[in-house]
Design a protein around this nucleic acid. Structure first.
Length: 285
DNA sequence: TGCCCCCTGCAG
DNA sequence: CTGCAGGGGGCA
């Protein structure tokens, strides 16, 4: 799923595209993907688009909001009046080019100037409706830790050093630090030359500093390249997909390939916390 | 903190 | 067929 840079990309696009659109009706296709009262947005204008970690929030007039979590396979596809597919976010399924609604469509926003489809193949994602206050105060958002960019180097170091679990799991724990997922955590650890299995509290000050820089670097780069569309290059040319970070993966999904621009060792895949973990066994210690 | 689970679909 | 997928919750 989309991690912070992917959601940020969708946010930036929707901010330009969707502001001022009036939602005539929100149609629920799959009830289990929709929480709260979708009818709240009917007849209301979109006045803002926000992001908190991996959660995308649409603010409507009269104090109404809708929060999306894409989890692994969620996506939004906006088709404007001229039938052009404009804004997409999330998993690279055939839905980007196929008929809409697709079999993965879970909710449809019928706007005065276009239609937006919330698709989610694996049904892990959700959209939650409520008053803006209810959305702002929802448990999921309140439990999130700070995003890396909200911390100074010193604050980052003091926070990370408190945990003894593997550093990669610390980076991915949304209650400690929010926004990073599997791709960027893997790449940041390579960038900093740190073994993902290292207990966080065993890192030296020098390594923590390098990690802070690495985390900020890969997230910034992710946003700059419009996120990562997919690990597999075959998706790159699909219409409407703007992400290019996958062309800059350091180790993520690159098992067996050489540790490029560094030692040339073969990149290895292990499992950590149940997730695929990629590393260079030679230059990550 | 470490497992197992929620789902669907695709590649090997 | 098995294993794997950008997330996260619940359980011991």
């Amino acid at each position: 799923m989309p991690e912070l840079p992917e959601i940020e990309t969708v946010k930036l696009q929707l901010e330009k595209e969707l502001k001022g659109f009036i939602c005539k009706e929100c149609e629920i296709v799959k009830a289990r993907s929709v929480h709260g009262n979708a009818g709240l947005v009917n007849g209301k204008k979109v006045i803002g688009v926000r992001r908190k970690a991996k959660v995308l929030i649409l603010d409507f007039e009269k104090g109404i909001s809708a929060a999306f979590h894409f989890k692994m396979t969620g996506q939004l596809i906006l088709i404007t009046g001229n039938k052009k597919r404009r804004v997409v976010g999330g998993h690279p399924t055939a839905d980007f080019t196929g008929e809409l609604p697709s079999k993965h469509t879970r909710a449809i926003f019928h706007f005065d100037r276009g239609t937006m489809y919330f698709n989610d193949q694996r049904l892990f994602g959700w959209v939650k409706f409520g008053t803006t206050e209810e959305i702002n105060n929802m448990d999921f958002l309140k439990k999130l830790g700070p995003e890396p960019s909200e911390l100074t180097e010193k604050e980052f170091m003091e926070k990370i050093i408190k945990y003894k679990k593997p550093i990669k799991l610390v980076l991915m724990d949304q209650e400690i630090l929010s926004g990073m997922g599997n791709i960027y955590a893997n790449d940041a650890l390579w960038e900093a030359g740190i073994d993902p299995k290292r207990p966080a509290n065993s890192l030296t000050a020098k390594q923590l500093k390098a990690l802070y820089r690495a985390v900020i670097l890969v997230l910034t780069e992710g946003i700059k390249y419009g996120g990562a569309t997919a690990a597999d290059a075959k998706y790159i040319n699909l219409h409407g997909m703007g992400g290019h970070y996958q062309e800059h993966f350091r180790v993520y999904s690159r098992v067996g390939e050489p540790c490029s621009n560094r030692c040339g060792e073969k990149i290895k895949r292990i499992t950590l916390g149940g997730r695929g973990t990629f590393l260079c066994p030679k230059c990550q210690q």
